[in-house]
Amino acid sequence: MTIAIDMTGKVALVTGAASGLGRAVALKLAQAGAALCIVDVNAEGLAETEGALADIGAQVLVHAADLSDPAACKGSVAAATARFGRLDALCNVAGLIYLAHSHEMAEELWHRTMAVNLTAPFMLSQAAIPHLLEAKGAIVNVASCASFIGEAYAAAYCATKAGLVNMTKAMAMEYMRKPIRINAVAPGGMITNIAVNYKLPEGCDIELLKRFSGMRGTVEVDDVADMVALLASPAGRGYHGNCISIDAGITAG
């Protein structure tokens, strides 16, 4: 069975859109007919995404912003609604990870992880919800398999992703009687800039890291993007308060 994802006439805001999963989500939604507000701190990467979206004829607003700043989160939503006059989907894809021995992690990196991975999705949602209620729209948060298992050297990352899943569920309950859908996806490891560029802490135990690599290998970015697009669209009408794991079995046992 093929599920038809139709976003014609709708507007989506996608964070982390300069590369990886965020770019893939933006492309999926554009192919389904959506106009896009793409947000990232990486202006150069946003320009590349804009070019890819232009190739398929999408309407695009490029908005470079550092989402560790709550004001920038609110400004991103304001920019999208000012340009397009509505907002139908918020896809909170942006995220980062710093691996460190917990007793050595810099306070600055702890706070930045919290700001980008957890506070930013809340602040973006807070600003977007009035518009999404009017449009009967959706929020999709990108969590991680690390929401459900402890991963060595990733205490901050695991904390934010677990928090994001429970925030999704709490907000879904709060708006249970309102015309909005709030869901999350929890991918396993994907080949993205985050995975390629993170640094291992000096003296780490490689065998501990291998425990979370997955026996079936990495997850395809496009597979996760397909699910995000589904949940963001009217085709995902049956989902609310869910977190869909797409991790090739990492959290199965």
Rank of each mutant, 00 (worst) to 15 (best):
N92Y: 06
N92F: 01
V93Q: 07
V93H: 08
A94F: 07
A94L: 02
A94V: 09
G95I: 00
G95S: 12
L96Q: 14
L96M: 14
L96K: 07
I97P: 08
I97W: 09
I97G: 12
Y98H: 13
L99Q: 10
L99V: 07
L99C: 11
H101C: 09
S102T: 15
S102V: 15
S102A: 15
H103P: 02
H103K: 06
H103Q: 14
E104N: 13
E104T: 08
M105I: 15
M105T: 11
E107S: 12
E108I: 11
W110M: 04
W110A: 02
H111S: 15
H111L: 14
R112S: 13
T113F: 00
T113A: 04
T113L: 01
M114K: 04
M114T: 05
A115S: 14
A115E: 09
V116M: 05
N117F: 00
L118P: 11
L118C: 11
L118Q: 05
T119D: 15
A120N: 07
P121K: 03
P121E: 04
P121F: 01
F122H: 15
L124N: 13
L124Q: 06
Q126S: 15
Q126M: 02
A127N: 07
A128M: 15
A128T: 10
I129Q: 04
H131K: 03
H131N: 07
L132M: 03
L132F: 11
L133M: 07
E134T: 10
G137Y: 01
G137T: 01
G137D: 06
G137E: 03
A138F: 10
A138K: 01
I139F: 08
V140S: 00
N141R: 01
V142I: 08
A143C: 11
A143R: 10
S144C: 08
S144P: 14
S147F: 09
S147H: 06
S147I: 03
F148S: 04
I149H: 12
I149T: 14
G150K: 02
G150H: 13
E151R: 11
E151N: 08
E151K: 06
Y153K: 02
Y153F: 13
Y153P: 14
A154T: 10
A154N: 05
A155P: 08
A156Q: 03
A156N: 10
C158H: 08
C158Y: 10
A159L: 00
T160Y: 02
T160A: 02
K161L: 00
A162D: 09
A162Y: 07
G163Y: 03
G163C: 06
G163K: 01
L164F: 06
V165L: 01
V165E: 05
N166W: 05
N166C: 03
M167V: 04
M167Q: 13
T168K: 01
T168M: 05
K169A: 11
A170E: 11
M173E: 07
M173Y: 11
M173R: 15
E174R: 10
E174S: 14
Y175V: 06
M176Y: 14
R177E: 15
K178W: 13
P179Y: 00
P179Q: 03
I180V: 12
R181W: 09
I182F: 11
N183L: 00
N183I: 03
N183G: 02
A184Y: 09
A184I: 06
A184N: 06
V185S: 03
V185T: 14
A186V: 15
G188D: 10
G188S: 09
G188R: 02
G189C: 04
M190V: 10
